[in-house]
């Protein structure tokens, strides 16, 4: 099962990179979101998928009765999901602003490049 997930992670990563390379800022954010999912899955898989019981201690007991799923990667992923969400939201707002400022979301277009460099120059002087 882990091997299957490993292949899935690789495929999503490839798709994410392809989208991020496209030079279209909207697709860049799509790729970024996909990448977040891929990384979460990677951490999850690396923590092994041997047990399907959640890491919970039964009421009335002070320790685990039997083997459970690895709690550590779960804690890491939980944090990662929230931070990834904050990042994507911020990226989207940046996208919105960029479009307002430059009139385009095509990072390869001259209009985009000149607008960015002009606003940078404005800051310097």
């Amino acid at each position: 099962m882990e091997a299957l997930l490993a292949m899935l992670v690789g495929l999503i990563t490839a798709a994410a990179f392809y989208l991020m390379l496209s030079g279209m800022l909207v697709r860049f954010v799509f790729g970024f979101t996909l990448m977040g999912n891929a990384v979460n899955l990677l951490i999850f898989t690396a923590g092994r998928l041997t047990h399907s019981d959640p890491p919970l201690i039964e009421p009335g007991q002070t320790g685990l009765a039997g083997p459970v799923a690895n709690a550590l990667p779960q804690a890491l992923i939980l944090t990662a999901i929230v931070i990834g969400f904050a990042m994507v939201t911020f990226l989207l707002i940046l996208l919105y602003r960029t479009h307002h400022q430059t009139g385009t979301l095509d990072a390869d277009q001259d209009a985009f490049l000149t607008e960015i460099s002009l606003s940078e120059k404005g800051k310097v002087s």
Partner: peptide, 19 residues
């Protein structure tokens, strides 16, 4: 596409190695 596929293969093989 080539670049992305290379990256994907690298990630997959890394993870498999890790496992």
């Amino acid at each position: 596409a080539g670049l992305s596929i290379c990256a994907g293969i690298l990630v997959t093989s890394f993870l498999m190695g890790l496992l």
